[in-house]
Write a protein that binds this DNA or RNA. Structure first.
Lengths: 177, 177
DNA sequence: TGATGCATGTAATCCGTTACATGATTCA
DNA sequence: TGAATCATGTAACGGATTACATGCATCA
């Protein structure tokens, strides 16, 4: 799936500007399983508009720069439905943290602890974003499903890490004694 | 983290050819959190050898093509330790499946079911790979940690999906009645 | 005889990120 | 006064994937 489809998908839930789409994938419900930068979002939006899959409307704002609000068209919805109907690629999960843990023999115990704590913080931040968005309850069923799934997976990670952390701390204490 | 470091890391655990490294990241313990193709592995290995971070040895095999077995050098270990000591990037998780679920209004219930089943199969396949590698028990502590973490996270996903699937099935049955 | 596994490699291409450029406003 | 937020965009660059090229052995 490319940034085009991503934009189309987000716009199918609500109108938005490029800036707002970026925020959604950065801080919103989507943040833990989607990624995109301005450098890919803006050109995609321009292209989508040229092809008639979305419309643009300039919105004047007092005190802030003008906004280009994009909305999906019927053609866009069809294109989205088509893109969605193809069997999705397998999930991709890349973890430098896990790679580091795998090679922990190269790491000192305190560096290990720092890495684990960082991972814990990252996971909890995602968990926080999900909890926060759930209150908003924008996207209906779909959003709830995604929130639940994310919550389950992230929580499992947190629990696993808390255990490891406690274990490590005990080992260090025993060593010091 | 790039493919160079990835190769160095795998070679720090055991000697291997490019082909074997690919297998490791495809079917091995690493498969659920790492990815790399021949097109990136082979050039990386060549480069690493040119820089003296690994050595090459041609191994003749009866019935099979010759193998180039790579082994990490002391310099390579130092380079790996350095690369590992930098704070790792945040985990990246990309899921077209979740995106599809988010936009489930565009999907028919049976397509939904197919997608969920596919995700379930993918997760279980990963779980199977982890269970299989654990028997081998190559990498010691690090490998065990990674296996546990993967198992916890993957299992959480499976449970969540089993619930959803049952829910959906019930809804469909109720609708049919 | 045709697919699959073992085995190595290159080149074109793609997709996206990073960095850069600009500019107004608000809050500390 | 300086940082952060809002807001849009482009160009260079990088990193990896895909597809291609080759070839032998084994199994169905």
């Amino acid at each position: 799936m490319n940034v085009r489809t991503l934009c189309l998908g987000i716009l199918s839930l609500q109108e938005a500007s490029g800036y707002e789409i970026k925020k959604d994938v950065e801080d919103g419900l989507f943040s833990h399983f989607i990624d995109a930068s301005y450098g890919s979002i803006y050109p995609a939006l321009t292209q989508l508009a040229a092809e008639g899959l979305v419309t643009v409307r300039a919105e004047e704002q007092t005190g802030k720069p003008d906004k280009k609000v994009y909305a999906i068209t019927d053609t866009g919805q069809t294109a989205l439905a088509n893109a969605l109907s193809v069997k999705p690629a397998k999930d991709k999960y890349k973890s430098e943290f896990l790679f580091q843990m795998l090679l922990q023999d190269f790491l000192s115990p305190d560096i290990m602890l720092v890495a684990i704590q960082k991972q814990l913080d990252d996971l909890n931040a995602d968990l926080g974003r999900i909890a926060h968005c759930e209150c908003g309850a924008d996207g209906g069923q779909g959003a709830r499903f995604v929130a639940e799934y994310g919550h389950a997976v992230l929580t499992a990670g947190v629990n696993c890490l808390e255990n490891k952390k406690a274990e490590l701390l005990q080992q260090l204490a025993a060593q010091a004694a």
